[in-house]
Write a protein that binds this DNA or RNA. Structure first.
Length: 594
RNA sequence: GGGGGUGUAGCUCAGUUGGUUAGAGCGAUCGCCUGUCACGCGAUAGGUCGAGGGUUCGAGUCCCUUCACUCCCGCCA
């Protein structure tokens, strides 16, 4: 036994009754009966009830002690009578009668209570994160995170992957997110960048012949935060494999995800084999390349139907003529839903910046007709065609919107979520994984109208590489894939392009000449010229995996020391100003915007 | 960069149509209480109503500006 404890606070059981023990921990809660005082002593492992009465000379000192003070108690383990057993804690059959105690760490008045299920403002939680982290729920989330990471690590080891560290100070690269820059003292005027991901390094590891690599890798991107996106930094399970095709990567990741999610959650997996959905299909059917497959609603394109003469919905017909599309969502058996249900969705759509959502319900008296504000614009025959096209039946309702494709995808995707939520169609006890595959290599930049890489410039284009038609770059698909779970993008990956000549060609399509590629990606392109194996990989986001497993909607709930939305660490006061000398040494001067 | 929400005691919140001295629970302090486990009871302290300006006889409440936190859009190969 060391001087602080003979047992932890979750260790004592009936068999220990009669023993003299030392416990150390935080005062979780006091219940003061005047002549009898209960103290719940807490540590990482659990809680033990300690008790002292007024006959003990320490009584009045303990009575005055602040919650969250760290104390050591010495006492005798006592059996609890049947009526006083507490089934909610594992040590509930016993209690410790305090003989004496020492204060190991005193505590000022608390800015926030630790023993409480209440919600607190992020500001106070982040400022006093060390207190926040003592609280049960988040304490357990962080422990879960640790266990998940160590499980993943051991699974990867078992699969023959080797773990390597890659540099944190590296070079800035074009494409992708904003870099965090670090000025170099020894190289005035030059900057390192923190890696947005160890992308190039892991490919170099393959070129170096290590075959299978993984790392729980910190990634840094200077972009704005979201609930599921930490500002600044996050962690990926970065992995890369040599001599593989897409399917080989899927096999590894699918097994790893299934094992991890089965081990750490009671929720069921919707699919044992993850469905593969092409990017094009995903955008049509779900309006998004990160569909939540728990949601049964599917989007249908009914643009063509609006060219019929027996539809007199002139606003949509006019928009369709000028290139807009019409897409719809069918809700099953909603004919008896109140008017407010439909109007709310229309109103909601307007709030999202769309022109609203039209709707009608298909009813049949003698003949099929459409009930609802715009129902009168549709003939019986047109309705039957819509029903055929969308699988809608009598009693179902159809919500539809008209817009240019991209905006339409956005609003129908959000409507799919909104309607499913309103109708309570999503089973919360399921994880629905899927692969999104066949991403296009390039896309058109909306603002500049230029061709740019749609995902990763290092991806391998699909098909026979000698027959690629570079004149139609938007038609080139890549061996590029995402894994999605419950509408959250966990990861993207690709089979890489390991052929320098092909790389130059693809970069030239995106507007980079050979010199620029050589300069920006010198390490990579040079390495690929000295015998590179075909290789590919992926990088699932650790924070998001833990978030799903912990059933949390916010990534800060599974991050030990997160920054706030403005990328500030309120506890450590980062970022902070630096003194003139530091700047001078780095050859920097500040020119702040007013 | 844009839009929404929130901001009242240390913490979580209530505060009506603009109307007297801004309330409650938890926490703190003091007192009572020997079987609680969210112990109970009584008392006390604690407020720049985020900040600034305006309207008004009168503003926590209405208007304008601004700040902070948060959610979303943009952004995130």
């Amino acid at each position: 036994m060391n001087k602080y404890r003979s047992h932890n606070c979750n260790e004592l059981r009936k068999k220990d009754v009669g023993g003299i023990v030392h416990l150390s921990g935080w005062i979780n809660k006091k219940r003061d009966h005047g002549n009898l005082l209960f103290i719940d002593l807490r540590d990482n492992y659990g809680v033990t009830q300690c008790i002292i009465d007024k006959d003990n000379s320490n009584f009045s000192k303990l009575e005055k002690i602040q919650l969250e003070t760290v104390i050591r108690v010495k006492g005798k383990v006592l059996d609890r009578s049947d009526e006083t057993i507490n089934k909610d804690i594992q040590t509930g059959e016993i209690e410790v009668v305090i003989e004496n105690f020492d204060i190991l760490g005193s505590c000022k008045e608390l800015p926030m209570p630790v023993f409480s299920d209440q919600e607190y403002s992020e500001e106070i939680r982040l400022k006093y994160r060390f207190l926040d982290l003592r609280r049960k729920k988040i304490h357990e989330n962080i422990i879960l995170r640790s266990k998940v990471i160590s499980f993943i690590r051991s699974e990867m080891n078992k699969l023959g992957f080797l773990e390597f560290q890659t540099p944190i100070l590296t070079s800035s690269s074009p494409e992708g997110a904003r870099d965090f820059l670090v000025p170099s003292r020894l190289n005035p005027g030059k900057f390192y960048a923190l890696p947005q991901a160890p992308q190039q390094f892991k490919q170099l590891i393959m070129v170096s012949g290590f075959d299978k690599y993984f790392q729980i890798a910190p990634c840094f991107r200077d972009e704005d935060a979201r609930a599921d996106r930490s500002p600044g930094e996050f962690y990926q399970l970065d992995l890369e494999m040599s001599f593989v095709e897409q399917e080989n990567v899927f096999e590894v990741v699918e097994k790893l995800m299934a094992n991890t999610f089965k081990k750490f959650s009671k929720k069921k997996l919707m699919f044992d084999e993850f469905p593969k959905i092409s990017y094009e299909d995903a955008l049509l059917k779900y309006g998004s390349d990160k569909p939540d497959l728990r949601n049964p609603l599917i989007i249908n394109d009914i643009t063509e139907i609006f060219t019929r003469d027996d539809i007199s919905f002139e606003i949509f017909k006019k928009l369709v003529k000028s290139g807009s599309k019409v897409r719809c969502i069918v809700t099953k058996n909603t004919k008896d839903k109140p008017r407010s249900f439909f109007d709310n969705i229309d109103k909601w759509a307007k709030e999202q910046g769309a022109s609203g959502m039209a709707y009608f319900t298909i009813v049949k008296d003698k003949e099929i007709s459409a009930k609802g504000p715009v129902g009168k614009f549709f003939s019986k025959e047109a309705l039957i065609e819509i029903m055929n096209k969308t699988n809608a039946k009598e009693g179902d309702s159809i919500f539809f919107a008209c817009n240019k494709q991209k905006e339409l995808e956005k609003i129908t995707s959000m409507a799919r979520d909104k309607i499913a939520k309103d109708l309570d169609l999503i089973d919360q006890n399921i994880f629905a994984f899927c692969w999104i595959i066949d991403y296009p290599m390039f896309e058109k930049d909306e603002q500049t109208n230029k061709i740019k890489f749609s995902h990763n410039p290092f991806s391998m284009p699909q098909g026979d590489i000698n027959k690629i038609n570079f004149d139609k770059p938007l038609d080139i698909l890549a061996y590029q894939y995402d894994i999605v779970c419950n509408g959250i993008e966990l990861s993207s990956g690709a089979i890489r392009n390991h052929i320098p000549e092909l790389m130059y060609k693809l970069f030239s399509v995106a507007g980079y000449d050979k010199e620029q590629v050589d300069e920006k990606f010198s390490g990579m392109i040079n390495a690929l010229s000295y015998g590179a194996p075909p290789h590919g990989g992926i990088a699932p986001g650790i924070d998001r995996i833990v978030m799903l497993l912990a059933n949390e909607k916010n990534i800060r709930e599974v991050t030990m020391f997160p920054m706030n939305q403005n990328a500030q660490d309120l506890m450590m006061n980062a970022p902070s100003e630096v003194n003139e000398n530091q700047l001078k040494e780095l050859n920097l001067s500040l020119k702040l915007k007013k």
